[in-house]
Design a protein around this nucleic acid. Sequence first.
DNA 1: TTGTAGGCGTTATCAC
DNA 2: GTGATAACGCCTACAA
Lengths: 335, 335
Amino acid sequence: MNPTIHDVARQANVSISTVSRVVNQPLAVRKEKRDRVLQAIEQLGYEPNPFASGLRDRATKTIAAMIPDITNPFYAELFRGIEDIAREQKNNVIICNTDQDEARFLEYMSYFKKKKIDGLIFVSAAVTDAHHATFAELQVPVVLAATDGERFGLPYVKVNDYAAASDAASFLIKNGHRSIGVISGPADDPIAGIPRLAGFRDALAAYGLPHGANAVAYGTYDFDSGYEAMRKLYGTMPELTAVFAASDAMALGAMAFLQRRGMEVPRQISIIGFDNISLSRMVTPALTTVAQPVYEIGKQAAAMLFRRIGNPQDEAQSLVLGHEIVVRDTVWNRN
Amino acid sequence: MNPTIHDVARQANVSISTVSRVVNQPLAVRKEKRDRVLQAIEQLGYEPNPFASGLRDRATKTIAAMIPDITNPFYAELFRGIEDIAREQKNNVIICNTDQDEARFLEYMSYFKKKKIDGLIFVSAAVTDAHHATFAELQVPVVLAATDGERFGLPYVKVNDYAAASDAASFLIKNGHRSIGVISGPADDPIAGIPRLAGFRDALAAYGLPHGANAVAYGTYDFDSGYEAMRKLYGTMPELTAVFAASDAMALGAMAFLQRRGMEVPRQISIIGFDNISLSRMVTPALTTVAQPVYEIGKQAAAMLFRRIGNPQDEAQSLVLGHEIVVRDTVWNRN
DNA sequence: TTGTAGGCGTTATCAC
DNA sequence: GTGATAACGCCTACAA
């Protein structure tokens, strides 16, 4: 049996209210008594029972993280950032794999309406009207990670996808490539689809390079779709010397396609990915890619959430973190 | 504000105890009233407040999963199995990344002693005396996943590592290999180190094949250590035609070393891994490996845990799940 | 079979 | 500045 507030009170020879005050508003208690209480707490190893507090205040010391799939290394690492901050704050984080499934999402949300949570971090998927409405019902702070919230005024932490994709294009161009294909995310994905494609294309255009429809294939960020997209792309644009993929997994898929067709990467075709997942350095040749500070995104999102939980009127300032190109072995210098 | 038991009672015109009974022991209530109550529950969307129940019964509807690192795809998938069962049981699972760090482990455990959990799943790491002692203090059921508990009488769900490694050896031998190297886990790891090495060596011995110290290098299951181990192994045993690695990540490391040295896999050197992580099909050539039913291990471990939580005297029957060899492209048939 | 009442540990409100 | 006390919502003796 854990010690309760009563045990501490008895030990310190004060009332339970005093103990409670020492814990919650230490300044309101005369120093002398406060020290006595503190000492008793220390001795007994007292910690407030979260159920009792929860029952009274409905604060749960629990946040939820909604993630497409923890099995995906990108999300796993982002989650680590969240978890590390939550642990610092002595909070639990309960993890929700949505599998991008609407029903699953709703199931979790209705669950949260009963069994309260203090806040929510929504990772990576585009926010729809339906999502937004559900968030509002929840009545707790919501922070977005690796996705955009401008449209709904939701605070977010992410990278500038447009600029990052644009940098990828410049990098390829600087390495002497002129015929460049793109494996994009879904054409209607406002997060990692549209902006990355636009950023990349605009950069090509700025250099006066072709960037027509035949230079783009679409995938769904995973390995298999990258493999398939590469097949299509190669069909419509056999002269290409480089490919930009909007995710590392797709880049790996593209690479697998090419290698299995007997083509040499990067000598014949160069590839640059996006994300810098841990696998990207494990393949041969190691993948050159645009790195997002994934772990940091998770950390900052969590920090922002706790700031808002502590102070609900805090007008959270969204964060755009920097990206960088990690140069490994899949881009050939043609100059 | 969510409806409480009182609201339901009023609506159904019964006392709160009747409502409580309907929820907890439906058989003890006359059918007529029961139906009325059920209807009221339905109408109001009543769900018991978990804090109130928690406060009374100290049941938290929360289990913990101790995992070396959720960023590792193997653990991530195992965790998915755990989570899926937990959700079925309307439990939360809080995830603890130990990073194999003792201090971190203890921090979590002491945290759990305060803020109770209903049960614990300990994944993958070898159980030490210290661990075991700490488990005992916790006073809640503990189940082991992907690790052994015989020594302490702890129930576990795992694969037969010895037999699986032995099968890997047979597979290589059947494909005509005679000079075979091993990249083992740590020599003192009783879980995935010792048994996999022993199983593999014993199989070689059974075929009258050499299996001396020069045919083994040791790693720590990760990519880099596999890379390094392959370098050593190749130094001591340049005649080898095949390598067994005790983890896929090490197999990938080994493969990277060979490929970067200009060697062809599998034509010159074959590789077989262990785990069947998702990456193994993404590399080229795709990795042949011994598959563990990871997701299933997580599921079964969780199911076992909930069985024991429900019935503490349940003498949990440990489970040994089957393995299989997933044949892809890294083993050359020399016959 | 059903209802009443007490207590789980905390915090906040009110007196003092 | 401090202490008693009333909730918070649930469950379960115990009484009826």
